[in-house]
Design a protein around this nucleic acid. Structure first.
Length: 574
DNA sequence: CGAGTGTGCGCC
DNA sequence: AGGGCGCACACTCG
């Protein structure tokens, strides 16, 4: 297996793999003939050194490859960093679905090898030869990255002028995100297993034998059984639990905690305690620790673009759902510290900027947007401001949030009108787009058929009701999509800007020898940094947030303040 | 017995 | 309630 390197204008370097017979006799770098003119081949043993040399000799180089997750971990293990890349797989997905490139050849082509998900070994780090042994996913022979890159550039070039610049930014940001995701997995989140064990022991009792319940869980269950005056049962089974509750006269219809909370019965408190502790035990207990924390690091796989809105997903260990209960186990190395930063009220600020609502932008001028709304007299309390805004962005129609909406719409007609319009578009079956041009998917076949049926002559009352419900459901999705997705773009730009600044600060050397990102959670980041650089890094985090706002919204008068905390464990932030 | 679905709950 | 996820477990189905 050899690697083919082809150079394009503008310091683009396209890399791909060749299967089958070697185009060159020996390893090393040579002028290739087998892979076409103007290309070089690089032997697998030379690959990391080759990239390192090009990065040094040709500043500003942008690597173009099919899938960052398949190329970059190998380089990181060799202490080689990449400054910029284009991740063709991620960008293909964006451009194929974007309304702004709907007329392109890329969008109108039938599904091809670039539409298939690429399987990457789950634990690439444990499998040193992974890069050269991939035998899953589409054959590389079917995926010519040079041709794909040309098709993608043509798609962007064919878009309307302001879409063009936004899509270019989106593509760069998405690709930078892929680099960051690989780097965060490589670095890992520093994790103190001893502290984690201490938290578990305090809350649950000592680690039980396999199959047994922890002592404090057992105690809570005994209290539940006594209070209900029933025979012992297994609360993990919703059926058994429901029967036990009902036999004690509690008219529960489900076993959800929020429903059980409303019943005044002595069994409820220990039952809720049981559920809380059981959750900790099963989701983030000793088994989780054994499985996910190795050598003082938690290394989840991040999945850039894993959510349709452009948010990241994660794979393994529930990285994006780390409960606050165990964040005290996230501890920096000796002599190092964490900078934890959080974008304050990101989504409502994004909405203010998206909609150009001057009144909401004014409320967003201060540190706390919700306080700003109260100060402007739009709502009476901060709690009301928050619940009303969240309701507006999520599409709440009833309850407190629904009642506050008219007031909000009077004070901020452009902002509320913006999300309402996104909802109407979804209800019609239209697609919507984020600020930079990521578009929502079309509703499914069943949805469209239902709407058509409801519009026909033979539609029954029941069909009409179902169609309207489904239309409103899809409208809530598109309503939220524009805000959530644009916020995800802001966060990508924030991280990408910060990554560049941290690289400059480091001035070279291995990734983990200087300040580096170790965690990302939608609107929050954690940097692991030598203690001496903490204040500097905090400053870079704030600069990067300002740059993200400028990149995406230009001179729109909306601030994106971030709170930064320099802490010696993750739970100390906020 | 394994695969798929539903429930409940953690995070934003 | 109302958007987006991942994961563990119970349960169902073939």
């Amino acid at each position: 297996m050899h690697l083919v390197v082809r150079r394009l204008p503008d310091r683009r370097v396209v890399v791909s793999r060749i299967h089958g017979a070697d185009p060159e006799a020996g390893p090393g770098v040579g002028a290739g003939s087998g892979a076409g003119s103007g290309s070089e081949t690089v032997g697998p043993d030379e690959w990391a050194r080759f990239v390192d040399r090009v990065e040094r000799d040709e500043p500003g180089v942008r690597w173009v490859w099919d899938d960052t997750a398949a190329w970059y971990p190998e380089l990181l293990r060799a202490d080689v960093r990449v400054t910029r890349c284009i991740d063709l797989r991620l960008c293909h997905a964006i451009l194929r679905a974007s309304i702004a490139t709907a007329a392109s050849a890329l969008a109108s082509a039938p599904p091809g090898p670039w539409d298939a998900p690429v399987a990457v070994p789950r634990d690439a780090a444990a499998d040193a030869g992974a890069l050269f042994d991939l035998d899953t996913g589409p054959a590389d022979d079917d995926r010519d990255p040079v041709a794909e890159f040309a098709v993608q550039r043509a798609a962007v070039a064919g878009a309307a002028p302001d879409s063009r610049s936004r899509l270019s930014l989106l593509i760069a940001a998405e690709s930078a995100g892929a680099l960051i995701a690989a780097e965060m997995t490589f670095a890992g989140l520093p994790w103190d297993a001893g502290r984690h064990d201490a938290v578990l022991t305090e809350l649950l009792g000592p680690r039980p034998a396999p199959g047994a319940r922890p002592r404090l869980l057992e105690d809570a269950l005994a209290e539940v059984v006594a209070a209900l005056d029933v025979a012992p049962f297994s609360p993990e089974s919703p059926g058994e639990l429901l029967r036990a509750l009902q036999s004690a006269g509690i008219p529960a219809t489900s076993t959800r905690s929020w429903e059980l909370k409303q019943f005044a019965h002595p069994a409820i408190e220990p039952l809720l305690r049981y559920k809380k502790l059981a959750r900790l035990y099963t989701a983030n207990g000793w088994n989780w620790l054994d499985q996910w924390v190795k050598d003082g690091r938690f290394r989840p796989t991040y999945v850039p673009g894993g959510v349709v809105s452009g948010r990241w997903a994660s794979d393994g260990g529930g990285a994006l759902q780390l409960p606050h209960q165990i964040r005290s186990a996230v501890v920096p190395d000796p002599g190092w510290t964490f900078i934890v930063a959080d974008a304050a009220q990101l989504e409502p600020r994004i909405l203010a900027a998206l909609s150009g609502d001057a009144a909401m932008a004014a409320a967003a001028r201060g540190v706390d947007l919700y306080d700003g709304m109260v100060a402007a007299g739009a709502v009476d309390t901060r709690a009301h401001a928050k619940v009303a805004m969240l309701g507006a962005m999520y599409g709440a129609t009833t309850g407190e949030s629904g009642r506050l909406l008219p007031r909000l719409a009077r004070a901020y007609p452009r902002a509320i009108g913006f999300v309402e319009e996104a909802a109407r578009a979804g209800e019609r079956g239209d697609r919507v787009s984020t600020r930079l041009g990521r578009s929502s998917p079309r509703p499914g076949r069943a949805w469209q058929e239902l709407q058509e049926q409801a519009g026909g002559d033979t539609a029954t009352e029941a069909i009409g009701r179902r169609a309207r419900t489904e239309a409103r459901n899809w409208g809530r999705f598109t309503r939220n999509f524009v805000v959530q997705g644009s916020a995800a773009e802001w966060a990508l730009c924030w991280m990408a800007s910060l990554r560049t600044r941290l690289t400059t600060l480091a001035g070279g050397g291995p990734l983990t020898a200087s300040a580096h990102l170790v965690f990302f959670l939608h609107d929050e980041i954690v940097v692991h940094s030598p203690a001496a650089h903490a204040e500097t890094v905090a400053g870079l985090v704030i600069e990067s947030a300002a740059e993200a706002g400028r990149l995406i919204f230009g001179d729109a008068p909306v601030d994106f303040p971030v709170t930064t905390a320099i802490v010696s464990s993750y739970d100390q932030a906020k």
